[in-house]
């Protein structure tokens, strides 16, 4: 575990240094990330020029949900977003090269071409979060702070798991890299809005199948002091860590199966 972390830092570090040598290009890329992720929020702002509540939620409340989801996706994208490129690596032979080195392949796949510019998305999310926390009326307790911070961490872990699964999937269906996007960026888009706008089946899907609702919705309900509109158990609002652990275990297993499959068939 420590070895893996060390390997990650060492490899990612080389790429961070490389990115920082082109200072202006780096700044531009970060700004692009900030703007592109802000466009989503701009759309929400435009929507709110026509109404006061969307899905029963006010703008600051939605901003909170938006920021939590954006942060989680941004952190996951930064850490393991590169797993989306596994299909490409297999095709160009660089994955074989990784298997020959004394560092776990998942670490190499994630850390190679580490894109520090992705902090742009995280920065944008934190910006919106700040605005949301200042604008929304929350009955702050220690519990709510813990749940908020915990949700941001667990949410990141959940999205990390989604990225890794997307990568593992490419061992079996190399060209279909884009499927992962439907769950990562699609998942982010879906959870930007209060789940009240979706039919119950969809909400159950993102609760029990792909636990994206635990990234921001359930913990968000607790922080905002709102009862679950779907009547699901209220302890779900504290269950983000459970969802994260379960999903991460699933992702790690799938990844291991994928690597074993690759080494047995040598695509």
């Amino acid at each position: 575990m420590v070895d893996a972390a060390r390997g990650f830092v060492v490899i990612a570090g080389a790429w961070v240094r490389a990115a920082l040598t082109y200072r202006t290009s780096f700044v531009i890329m970060v700004l692009v990330q900030v703007v592109i992720t802000f466009l989503d929020f701009a759309a929400i702002l435009i929507m709110f020029s026509h109404l006061d509540a969307f899905g029963g939620f006010t703008l600051p409340q939605i901003a909170l949900l938006f920021a939590m989801s954006g942060f989680a996706l941004g952190a996951a994208d930064l850490l393991v977003g590169n797993s989306e490129a596994l299909g490409r690596r297999i095709r160009d032979g660089s994955f074989d090269q990784m298997l020959v080195r004394p560092v776990a392949p998942i670490v190499q796949v994630a850390a190679d071409r580490f894109a520090i510019r992705r902090v742009g998305r995280i920065a944008q999310a934190l910006g919106v979060l700040t605005w949301a926390l200042l604008s929304v009326s929350i009955d702050w307790t220690v519990g709510r702070v813990v749940v908020l911070v915990g949700a941001m961490l667990c949410g990141s872990v959940i999205f990390c798991a989604v990225f890794v699964m997307g990568g593992a999937f490419q061992v079996f269906a190399g060209d279909a890299a884009e499927v992962s996007n439907a769950f990562t960026y699609g998942g982010n888009t879906l959870t930007q809005y209060p789940l009240t706008i979706y039919p119950t089946e969809l909400v159950k899907g993102v609760t029990f199948i792909v636990p994206l609702a635990f990234v921001n919705w359930y913990p968000g309900l607790y922080v905002l002091g709102i009862d679950d509109p779907f009547g699901l158990p209220s302890w779900f609002q504290f269950a983000s860590p459970i969802a994260a652990v379960v999903f991460v275990v699933a992702a790690a297993t799938f990844w291991r199966i994928a690597v074993r499959h690759y080494r047995s068939t040598g695509s």
């Binding site: 269906a173 060209d175 879906l190 809005y193 009240t196």
Partner: peptide, 24 residues
């Protein structure tokens, strides 16, 4: 395979955005 993946992604986003517009 890439095209099928694209169809899937477009469909997922289609559903999400449709519900967003319905709410609006």
């Amino acid at each position: 395979a890439a095209t099928l993946a694209g169809v899937f992604t477009n469909s997922v986003f289609g559903v999400i955005i449709a519900y967003t517009y319905i709410a609006l």
